[in-house]
C-alpha cells in the first residue's frame, strides 16, 4: 500500500510504485480535474501542485511522493476558477484545470507578478484551441481579486 496526502486528506492506494500520480488521482481517488494529455510532460494538462510547486503528474511515480503534499484543482480556492469563468477562458476546456493549477502556484508566491513573469511561468502549459490570451486575462483578473495585480510592461521600467 502506498500512502499519499491529496488536498489535505490522507489516502492509501494499492498500486504499483511506478504508477503515475495522475492515474492514481483519476482512477483511484476519482479526482478527475487533472487530465491526461501527452503523457510526456510536454503539455501541462495533468498539472498539480506538489508542495506549492506545479509539476506534471503524468511523470511523477506515486511512490516518490513520500511526505510531500499534493493539491489538485478540486482543493484550490475558487478565485482563479471564477476569473477563468468570467473571462470565458475555456474553449474545449481540456487544458484549463492544468492552467488554473499552474497559475495558482504563481499567484500564491507573488500576487503582483509582471506580465513577462506570468507569460514565462505559464509557458509549459499548452492550449490547443489557442485561448492563451483569454487565459492571460483570467490570470490578471484573479491577481487583482487576490489583492495584487499583474504589473504591465510599461510599469516595470
Amino acid at each position: 500500500m502506498i500512502k499519499l496526502t491529496v488536498n489535505g486528506r490522507a489516502h492509501q492506494v494499492d498500486v504499483d510504485p511506478d504508477t503515475p500520480l495522475l492515474y492514481v488521482l483519476r482512477n483511484d481517488l476519482e479526482l478527475n480535474a487533472a487530465k491526461f494529455g501527452c503523457g510526456l510532460g510536454q503539455c501541462g494538462a495533468c498539472t498539480v501542485l506538489l508542495d506549492d510547486k506545479p509539476v506534471f503528474s503524468c511523470l511523477v511515480p506515486v511512490a516518490t511522493l513520500g511526505e510531500r503534499k499534493v493539491r489538485t484543482l478540486e482543493g484550490l480556492p475558487k478565485t482563479l476558477p471564477a476569473a477563468f469563468e468570467a473571462e470565458q477562458a475555456a474553449q474545449c476546456g481540456y487544458c484549463i484545470a492544468g492552467m488554473i493549477v499552474r497559475a495558482q502556484a504563481l499567484l500564491e508566491r507573488n500576487a503582483r507578478p509582471t506580465e513577462e513573469e506570468v507569460r514565462s511561468h505559464m509557458a509549459p502549459n499548452l492550449c490547443r484551441c489557442g485561448t492563451h490570451m483569454r487565459i492571460l486575462r483570467a490570470v490578471r483578473r484573479a491577481a487583482e481579486a487576490m489583492g495584487g495585480g499583474v504589473r504591465d510592461v510599461a510599469e516595470q521600467k
Binding site: D18, T19, P20, L59, V60, P61, A63
Partner: peptide, 14 residues
C-alpha cells in the same frame, strides 16, 4: 530497486 520504479514512472515513457 527504488530508482528502477522511479525510472519506470518518470523516464521510460520517453
Amino acid at each position: 530497486p527504488d530508482a528502477a520504479a522511479l525510472y519506470a514512472g518518470a523516464c521510460a515513457t520517453c
